[in-house]
């Protein structure tokens, strides 16, 4: 499902020159229905790996294959279809502020042209499941951090993606909301979605044992 082969990544400088390496010789593979923690301190390269997985950037060297698509070699026009198969949960939510919670969740379905009746049914169902049906009409700014995070998750999984990636999803949440979020990920994983969660907290993998890939300074230092 996801394969990194000797991946190197350097973000270009404003002058266009290759900058300092963010990833060096990173290799691993994730299977269908897997649950993986990406563990490491800030700057270790976790977010870069997630950005490569969602085709937000291309590798400087090596091979990144996601859902059968070679991110480095794929035509630009082929990437939107790939992105629609991947759910993404950002640390800073990235909800559209001028849309209601309901419309934010409906967005991925509308992008693929789903019929409005089907959109209504799916969005209502997922908001009910996440306990947010009563707040569907509210703007993101009117919701708590945990509620916004759940809306972000609803938007990420509404299309039933094969792969869900989350970047520090609990950093803005209190302990109760964080546990609830991880439980939600575990439940989705049980339903067949492959999950990749980046975190700097060793507490989360300890509470929810799964495969852990540990990074430091752009390299994998432990990947059982």
């Amino acid at each position: 499902m996801v394969r990194f082969g000797r991946v190197g990544l350097a973000y270009p400088t404003p002058q266009g020159d290759p900058g300092q390496a963010a990833l060096r010789d990173v290799s691993f593979a994730l299977g269908e229905g897997s649950f993986t923690w990406l563990l490491g301190p800030s700057g270790a390269g976790k977010s870069s790996i997630l950005r490569l997985m969602q085709a937000a950037i291309r590798p400087t060297s090596g091979v990144v294959s996601v859902l059968g698509t070679d991110i480095g070699q794929a035509e630009r026009a082929a990437l939107p279809a790939l992105r629609r198969k991947i759910g993404v949960v950002h640390q800073e939510f990235r909800l559209l502020p001028h849309l209601s919670a309901w419309d934010n969740v409906a967005l991925p379905l509308r992008l693929v042209g789903r019929a409005e009746a089907a959109v209504r049914q799916d969005v209502n169902e997922i908001l009910e499941w996440l306990g947010l049906a009563a707040k569907a009409g509210r703007a993101p700014a009117e919701l708590s951090g945990g509620e916004q995070q759940r809306i972000t998750i609803a938007r990420a999984i509404i299309t039933r993606p094969a792969l869900l990636i989350a970047d520090e999803p609990t950093s803005e949440l209190d302990v109760f909301e964080a546990r609830r979020l991880i439980a939600l990920f575990v439940e989705m994983n049980r339903l067949g979605t492959a999950i990749v969660v980046a975190t700097h907290s060793e507490d989360l993998p300890a509470r929810h044992p799964a495969r852990v890939i540990t990074l430091a300074e752009g390299r994998i230092i432990d990947a059982p």
Binding site: P80, R94, L107, L111
Partner: peptide, 12 residues
Amino acid sequence: DSVMVLHMLGAA
């Protein structure tokens, strides 16, 4: 920001 979100959600 909105354009970037739409782009990353897979909008062509």
